[in-house]
Design a protein around this nucleic acid. Structure first.
Length: 319
DNA sequence: AATATCATCAACCGCGAACAC
DNA sequence: GGTGTTCGCGGTTGATGATAT
């Protein structure tokens, strides 16, 4: 057992410490071209004097596309606090609820700032239920669907754990089956025009590790432990992609499509949800600003679409 | 200006789980 | 079933910059 295997290969001296820009470039280029596959072979093939573990960490925490850098918003902090109260130090699980944030980043932020904040709050004996993030705790701990569906505020999306559908009833498979309580804040629309549909997204989409590579479009990562089977992706100059949803455990098909035009300007991501037939489909569109930080590695561009998502109280996010 | 202390964050380490043989 | 390998997670460390004395 253990992680000694890589290190003990005939005393190959692995470099440690901070990564240089050249090393970053080598690693990024290699993974963009070939995917990471087996991490232990990545440094060998990429010509790096690092061990696979170090490469994996560097990719996950720093080079992976879609990472959000910078200060944590108050909403993110609230989410961390609420989830930490429920999950404890499960940084990896917490990070799944914060698109673009890594577990390491969240862990650091906790130890450097949030932990003290909590201690201070406890010292002043503020009841946890009065904190603004109690709604997040509610969906974590409650078994009531009505609790899940109640939108916490006009400015915040409704968050629904995917486990709800596994534990209760299957999710709606068509647009018409969606509970208006969720999508229209309780307002039915019998015969009139369908109200503006909410943005719909899964946190998993925000992890590019969920994307499956195709021969035409070698892409990073291929695995998803929850069985989210990918479709195809093309990160060429015209960034576009189609991703199949989970069809094995009762969840409906969901195909996020995104496309970045060559003319520049604003990018968009269209999310289409269907029951598998072409006849009953609805879609919503995300917008995200052109990110100047989009990497250009060997003519592949990354869409940093996590950075500027703004979900509102009319939106639903499956976590 | 020099030094000490604190805060932040990238990276390392060790462990356990999952998997392959 | 036993052993080795790989991966992912969480705790911890150490370098660096900011701030206080």
């Amino acid at each position: 057992m253990g992680s000694k295997s890589q290190e003990q290969k005939p005393k190959l001296k692995h470099k440690k410490g901070l990564w240089s820009p050249e090393e970053d470039q080598r690693l990024r280029s290699y993974i963009v071209k070939h995917g990471h596959g087996c991490w232990s072979t990545v440094p060998i093939n990429a010509g790096l004097q690092r061990n696979g573990k170090s490469c994996r960490l560097r990719w996950i925490n720093y080079l992976r596309p879609g990472l959000k850098r910078g200060l944590f918003s108050s909403h993110e902090e609230d989410t961390i606090l609420a989830l930490h109260r429920h999950l404890g130090n499960k940084w990896s699980q917490i990070s799944q609820h914060l698109p673009g944030r890594t577990d390491n980043e969240i862990k650091n932020h906790w130890h450097s700032y949030l932990k003290k904040k909590v201690l201070k709050e406890n010292a002043s004996s503020t009841p946890p239920e009065t904190t603004p993030h109690s709604e997040i705790q509610r969906y974590c701990s409650s078994s009531s669907i009505t609790d899940h569906y109640s939108s916490p505020s006009p400015d915040k999306p409704t968050l629904i754990p995917a486990s709800h559908f596994r534990e209760n009833s299957p999710p709606p498979s068509t647009a018409d089956q969606w509970d208006p309580q969720i999508f229209n804040n309780g307002h039915h629309h019998e015969n009139g025009p369908r109200p503006a549909l909410p943005k719909l997204m899964f946190a998993e989409w925000l992890s590019l590790d969920s994307f499956a590579a195709t021969s035409a479009a070698p892409l990073v990562g291929c695995s998803n432990t929850k069985g989210f089977a990918g479709g195809s992706a093309d990160f060429g100059p015209d960034v576009s992609g189609v991703f199949g949803g989970d069809n094995n455990n009762g969840l409906f098909h969901a195909y996020p499509l995104f496309h970045q035009g060559t003319s520049g300007g604003q990018n968009s991501m269209t999310t289409t949800v269907s029951d598998g037939s072409a006849s009953d489909v609805f879609s919503s569109q995300f917008s995200f600003d052109d990110q100047s930080s989009a990497a250009d590695a060997n003519n592949y561009q990354f869409v940093e679409f996590c950075s500027d998502f703004q979900l509102s109280g009319n939106d639903v996010m499956y976590i």
